[in-house]
Each structure stands twice: as structure tokens, then as C-alpha cells.
Nucleic acid binder design. Structure first.
Length: 574
DNA sequence: GCCGTTTTCGGCCCGACTGTTTTCAGTCG
């Protein structure tokens, strides 16, 4: 079993133990061990053989034995037992706001509640309010929480989060009492999906801002309200927290509320190791406070180089920052051009000219067109005849544009069921580049799907693999595929993998981008734009790349137009 | 369940807020 899956098993065990109300520190030990594993290579056999695995902090004697059992046999007796003896619905109860391990234990012991349906029934018949430690408000809150989970789910897309937080953040910033304000939490870390919205502001008088906030038109319900913090549920369902601190507290609070939780814990441990104390308000030594004007200073005080928000997951960034400055992460302004854009030749909404104009307006100097191939009937895929016509149109436009801008002729070519491509070689040879994507037969077995995609990326005309898992965030899981094997195959054949920047996809994900980088591969941030506005999705792709620790050198579309041309020429068969 | 040069037992990040209590436990981030 690979490392990632082992980490998932340990995480699940920790969660199952929590739902059962076991000792909280024991539960955390499982999560900590899972976290520690994420920094290790996908195949543990070498570490096991050389007896080095046990040196990993967080893996004690007992945990080590579990990891070895999983890695070598693919099974774990204690895991299977735990699953068998824990009601499957119990874990869902942890997602109900206001319910934690202790309350769940009471519900289970007193009312035999083992899932959301049981809980709803008990709450609706007022059995919950009479339990010790519960009351009518808790009961009402539980019902509201179940409704929330069952209606909208508990995460939203990053793009949805940005749209919702925008007007609120602008409003907070515009308040006279506000000195400055930032969005924190997983949004600042640019996670693909977001659980809730966090806004932090600095002020010497936070009360009027908090009061105005809870009366905003977007607010559907006030969940909590104190002198420094207010929590609301917005009309669209997501929770939004607003916290006010003083200007001197701001850097500490910004760091704390940006998280991740794991990163914070590691930071606090580091402070403790120096005999200091770190919290959301200050860093304190034995002789008093150690003031910091910025997050960078907090890291400096703790003997660390600055760590960008996107890296704060306790995936090894603290150890890296201990050794010295971290590489400069890629930014939007590093991108010089873009690939994988659609036009109205297939299912895009804009003309070729409009896409060129929009690309130039965004400061880019080349545009790769990649309309759908002929089998993609649903998306107006181009027949060979139409391909030739589009080439002529692009040639004409390129001539008109002269040296100032370059359009690359590409295609998003379907990978057919057997792994062959949707155009014959002589047509593929006419494109500057080829993005190969799966758009059909999602239900193939993992083995067949993996072979199919690997066959396609081995095709010498294929320049990039498009959205490698086909996932649609919060809507559809990716198809079954051995992504590790696909990445390795791409590495061998010199095929790039795209980071599809559409906020519904973000595919390849950050974790596998790290893997690709470790193999020395180039990634390419592709907006998969179907309109001029779709070009702005590049920002989401940048977020994935930054979370994956990618620098400009790791991203293909930071290369100049002439470097791109040379790279295409090198890649294609002679 | 992990960890250790003040500890092999007794800690484990910690502060705000809520609701249910009548001084605090539980949850959350």
C-alpha cells in the first residue's frame, strides 16, 4: 500500500476513535502520524528495509507496526476491527456544528443515536434537550446543523468563497474604525475548496464593525457574537467569521487565523521549545513580549525563513524554512502566455480575435488555442476539414499580429477508449502542440483507464496531458486511475501535465504536482477558458502551483514565446 | 498513542464563545 493511502487509513482511524469518544490525545496521535507520513516518499519499502521509518517523529512503536503492516500486507487488523465495531453513521455526527466527541458519546449512550437520521428524529421529538449538558438551544442548533449539512454540504469552491467574501471584505475595509483587513483561513492558503470564510481586521474599536457586520444583508443567522468576534451564516449557507484585534496583535492573529491548524501547532511547539509562548495575540518570552510588525518577523524570531500562506500545511515547510530561505513561488505575473483555450470554433463563447484581445489585455504575449477534437460531438469538436480551416485562420491572424503576439495551434484531443488519439498522426503533426484529455468512458476499471491514459501520453505527438483525473470538485470524483503511474509515464516520455485552472477542476491537484516536481517534470497552468473571462481562472491554477511549492522555473508557460516554440520543436517526432 | 538532558509518568496549543450551569465543560478554529 502506498504512503498516501496509509496516511488516509490512519486519519480515518483517528476520526473513528474521535466519533467513539476515545481519548482525544490518542486520536490526535493517529492524525499526527498521518501528517508525518505525508512528507515521506510514496513507496516506504526502502525506509522499512533500512529500519529508518521509526525515526520519523510521530511514529512510535505501536504506530510504526501499524504502518509497516499496511505497507507490506495492505491490511491492518486493528483498522478492520475498528471499522466493524463503529456504526458507519457515527462519523457524520462530527460534522454537525456544536457536536464533538463528548456530546456524541452522551447521545449514543443515552439515546442510542448512531447517525444523522437518528439524531434528527431524537431532536425533532425533543429527546435531546432533556439530556444532561444539552438544552433547548443545543437541540435547535443541532437541527439547524443537520439541515445545513443535508442541503448545501459543508464545503464550497474557492471561486464561490471569493465571490461571497469580496463585498464583505470591501465593506470591512471601508469602515472608519478599520485600520486594515485580510481574508484568512483556507482561502488565504488557496485551498481548492473552502469550509468557511474568515476575515480579520485591525482596529482600536472593533465593536461598531462587528455590529455592522451581523446586520449585513448577506447574513441569514448570527451564530455567535462577542466583543472581538462574530460568526454568522450567510444566506448562501456558508459560515463567515469576523474577528477584530489591535494593530500590534494583527500579525500574530493573521498568522494564527490563516492556519493551517497543523502549521499553527508546529509553530507553537517551536515557541515552547525556546521557552516562549505563541498565541493569536503575541509572542512572549520570559522577559516579556517579543513584538513583531509582520508575519515575516514572527518566522524570523522563531529561526525560520518566511513561509508563504499556501505552504502552511505542516508538510515539511517548517523544516525547509529552518534550513534557509524558501524558493520564490510562482506568481501570476510570471506567466507570459497560456495554453488550452477554447473558441467558438468548438464550445467556447468567444471568437479567435476576442480571445487574442483578451489575452493581450491580461499582459500575456502568446495564446495556445485548443478546441475539441472530432469525437467530442457534444462540444462541437472539429472535423479534420475544420481543423485545416482553423489553422488557416490562425496563420492569417498571426501574420497580422506580427512580432507582438503569437497564437499557437493546438487541440484538446480526446483520448479514445483504447488510448489512441482522435486524429491521425498526419493531422496531429500539423499542430504546434496537443493536449490529450479523457472525455468519455469514465467507468473503465482502474487498470484499463491507467493503461489507456499511459498509452496516450506515450504518443510522441502529445505535448500535455489535460485534466488528468476528470474530477469536478464537490460534484464528481475523478475516474479510477493510478495517477502515480501516469505521472511516472509522463516523466519518462517528457509529456507535461496541465494544472487545469478551472475552479471546478483544479486537476492536477497540489499533492500530485509536488510528486511531478520531485520527478523533475514541468507543469503547465492551463485556464481551459471557454470565454474571455475564463482566462482569469489562471489565478486558481497559480494557487495550486504555489501550494505545490512550484517556482517559475517549474511552470512551462513562464517561458517566452521563442522558448516555447523551441520546446515544441524538440518534443515532436522528426 | 507519542514523547523525554528538569519527567519513563504525565504532559500533550490555547483562547473565545456558548449553553448549561450556578462555576465550567465542550466545541471551535
Amino acid at each position: 500500500m502506498d504512503t498516501r493511502r496509509i496516511a488516509e487509513v490512519l486519519d480515518e482511524m483517528g476520526t473513528l476513535l474521535e466519533a467513539r469518544g476515545e481519548d482525544a490525545f490518542r486520536c490526535r496521535a493517529y492524525h499526527n502520524a498521518a501528517q508525518a507520513l505525508k512528507a515521506l516518499p510514496p513507496d516506504l519499502s526502502e525506509l522499512i528495509a533500512s529500519n529508518q521509518l521509526g525515526e520519523t517523529p510521530g511514529l512510535g512503536k505501536s504506530m510504526l507496526a501499524k504502518v509497516v503492516e499496511l505497507a507490506t500486507t495492505g491490511r491492518l487488523e486493528s483498522y478492520e476491527q475498528l471499522r466493524q465495531t463503529t456504526p458507519p453513521g457515527l462519523v457524520a455526527l462530527l460534522r454537525v456544528p456544536g457536536l464533538g466527541p463528548k456530546k456524541i458519546k452522551v447521545l449514543r449512550e443515552e439515546l442510542q443515536i448512531e447517525g444523522l437520521a437518528d439524531l434528527r428524529q431524537a431532536a425533532e421529538s425533543n429527546q435531546v434537550a432533556s439530556l444532561k449538558g444539552f438544552g433547548t438551544k443545543t437541540e435547535a442548533k443541532i437541527l439547524e446543523g443537520i439541515n445545513f449539512i443535508e442541503s448545501v454540504g459543508d464545503r464550497i469552491l474557492q471561486s464561490t468563497a471569493r465571490r461571497q467574501i469580496g463585498p464583505i471584505l470591501d465593506w470591512v475595509r471601508a469602515q472608519p474604525a478599520t485600520i486594515k483587513a485580510e481574508a484568512c483561513g483556507s482561502l488565504r492558503r488557496q485551498k481548492a475548496t473552502i469550509g468557511d470564510l474568515d476575515i480579520l481586521f485591525a482596529s482600536s474599536d472593533p465593536a461598531p464593525v462587528l455590529d455592522g457586520f451581523i446586520h449585513r444583508p448577506e447574513v441569514a443567522a448570527v451564530l455567535a457574537q462577542g466583543p472581538t468576534k462574530a460568526s454568522v451564516r450567510l444566506a448562501e449557507g456558508v459560515q463567515c467569521d469576523l474577528r477584530g484585534v489591535s494593530l500590534t496583535q494583527f500579525p500574530f492573529a493573521l498568522n494564527y487565523f490563516t492556519g493551517s491548524k497543523e502549521h499553527n501547532i508546529a509553530m507553537r511547539r517551536r515557541a515552547i521549545a525556546r521557552g516562549w509562548k505563541l498565541n493569536e495575540y503575541s509572542l512572549d518570552g520570559p522577559e516579556g513580549p517579543l513584538p513583531c510588525d509582520s508575519e515575516a518577523e514572527i518566522y524570523e524570531r522563531l529561526g525560520l525563513a518566511y513561509i508563504e500562506p499556501e505552504l502552511r500545511e505542516d508538510w515539511g515547510e517548517i523544516e525547509a524554512a529552518e534550513r534557509g530561505p524558501l524558493p520564490t513561488l510562482v506568481t501570476r505575473s510570471d506567466l507570459i502566455g497560456t495554453f488550452h483555450c477554447h473558441t467558438d470554433w468548438s464550445d467556447g463563447g468567444a471568437t479567435l480575435d476576442e480571445m487574442v484581445e483578451a489575452t493581450r489585455a491580461r499582459g500575456l504575449t502568446y495564446l495556445g488555442i485548443a478546441d475539441h477534437s472530432r469525437s467530442a460531438g457534444y462540444a462541437g469538436g472539429l472535423s479534420i476539414e475544420r481543423v485545416r480551416k482553423q489553422w488557416a485562420a490562425i496563420d492569417a491572424l498571426n501574420t497580422k499580429l506580427g512580432q507582438t503576439f503569437k497564437i499557437f495551434k493546438g487541440t484538446e484531443c480526446d483520448i479514445l477508449g483504447d488510448g489512441s488519439l482522435d486524429y491521425p498522426d498526419e493531422i496531429l503533426a500539423g499542430f504546434d502542440y496537443v493536449v490529450a484529455s479523457v472525455h468519455s468512458l469514465f467507468g473503465l476499471s482502474r487498470e484499463v483507464m491507467t493503461d489507456r491514459v499511459i498509452a496516450a501520453v506515450k504518443n510522441p505527438y502529445v505535448t500535455m496531458l489535460g485534466h488528468p483525473t476528470g474530477r469536478l470538485l464537490l460534484a464528481r470524483d475523478g475516474y479510477a486511475i493510478d495517477l502515480e503511474a501516469v505521472i511516472e509515464a509522463c516523466s519518462k516520455s517528457g509529456t507535461m501535465i496541465e494544472i487545469n485552472a478551472n475552479p471546478h477542476r483544479l486537476d492536477l491537484d497540489d499533492e500530485h504536482c509536488r510528486r511531478a516536481k520531485a520527478l523533475g517534470m514541468l507543469l503547465v497552468i492551463n485556464p481551459d477558458a471557454h470565454s474571455t473571462g475564463g482566462l482569469d481562472d489562471l489565478d486558481y491554477g497559480i494557487g495550486v502551483a504555489r501550494r505545490a511549492n512550484l517556482t517559475a522555473a517549474d511552470v512551462f508557460n513562464t517561458r517566452s514565446s521563442s522558448e516555447v516554440e523551441a520546446a515544441f520543436a524538440r518534443h515532436r517526432p522528426v
